[in-house]
Amino acid sequence: MHRLMFAVALAALAGCASQRAHDPAPIFVASGEGAEESCWRYVMVHESHPDCVLLDEPDSFAPARVTLATNQRVLASRSDWTLNKPWVAVQVTIDGRKLGGWMPRSSLGERPIYFPTDTSVERDGAQSAPRLYRRNWDVDEGLPDRSLATVLAQEAAIARGLGGDPVSPDPALVRANLHRFGRDGGLLDD
């Protein structure tokens, strides 16, 4: 039993060490001695958005460490934020484990989103469009419902084409497709 625990602890330590070894991202210290001033920020993008992830490096096509959730609270480097840097060093705690990495500033905000999307309503696609509006906005006038259904069908086609699913596109697949687009077009200098 003790051997097993030791092995698990060793594996965990090795994991942390190897993560640090290949990790150019500053996992900044959020508290205690040497702490960098930090602030709470919220993930402002939908789970299907390719930026809804913690990245290894300040680069959209860097490997993702973990997928985050809309409105998830993250600890952000205050200096990155106040200096308006396009990339912000971020730390999240998942299952008691602190993970550091990078997020684009444009995917973070200072407060949670006011109206989160109700994906269960969207699942029904075009037919549910008027209902979705009325639910979220209490609209009972003037919107061309048929056109709205067309827009939703268009969104579904885009989600299928980029993320493999018309309702729940896979953000990892979206990122891979965007990267492939750049690479195939000879646009990436790497």
Binding site: H46, G109, I113, Y114, F115, N136, L143, P144, S147, T150
Partner: peptide
């Protein structure tokens, strides 16, 4: 307006465009 609200606004405007 926050990002999700702007998204719904854009969707509504798009409905007018495809109309």
């Amino acid at each position: 307006y926050d990002p999700s609200e702007q998204y719904y606004i854009g969707r509504g405007v798009s409905a007018v465009i495809v109309d």
